[in-house]
């Protein structure tokens, strides 16, 4: 990443700090993306990612940390989310299991939403940290405000 992030948060891996971080994300998006629907979609993906980290990666001790960097571009929002919790099982994010909506599942929607709403998705385990890279497409011509500088590349 060569350009400074539009939002950069470092916070404790706990529900209250995650809520505060999501509110900061919402504020950052509010200023730059004119369609409410698009803002809520970005917020939803990050909420699912952060809830997964709390529920699965950072459960063994109280002092885990999470980082979130976010870049807002004309056609997409790019996010890097990292934590010092345990690695993904089998070294990769779970593949969503086949959907059986008529079985009325109450869980298992999170990864499906993350995958369904991102155009690019990557996972790395680096120096004891999980690193997730996410690109979320924005609707054409109605995404980030048109005056954004377009020079810096990610």
């Amino acid at each position: 990443m060569t350009a400074a992030a539009d939002l950069s948060c470092r916070f404790a891996a706990g529900p209250a700090a995650v809520r505060t971080a999501l509110a900061a994300v919402a504020d950052a998006l509010d200023d730059r993306i004119d369609r409410r629907h698009a803002r809520l979609t970005v917020e939803l993906v990050l909420a699912e990612v952060l809830n997964n980290i709390l529920e699965h990666a950072c459960t063994d001790r109280a002092d885990h940390r999470i980082g979130l960097d976010l870049w807002i571009r004309r056609d997409r929002v790019c996010c890097v989310v990292f934590d010092d919790g345990r690695a993904m099982p089998q070294g990769a994010p779970p593949r969503p299991t086949p959907l059986r909506p008529h079985a009325l599942p109450e869980r298992g929607f999170g990864w499906r939403l993350i995958r369904g709403l991102t155009s690019e998705f990557g996972y790395l385990r680096v120096a004891g940290c999980n690193v997730l890279i996410l690109h979320l497409p924005l609707p054409k011509a109605q995404g980030a405000a048109a005056h954004l500088p377009d020079g810096a590349r990610i």
Binding site: L40, E43, L44, P105, E106, R107, F109, G110, L113
Partner: peptide, 11 residues
């Protein structure tokens, strides 16, 4: 705003 937990609750 409805997330996966909210959807699970509706189900």
């Amino acid at each position: 705003f409805l997330d996966s937990s909210g959807l699970g609750a509706v189900v």
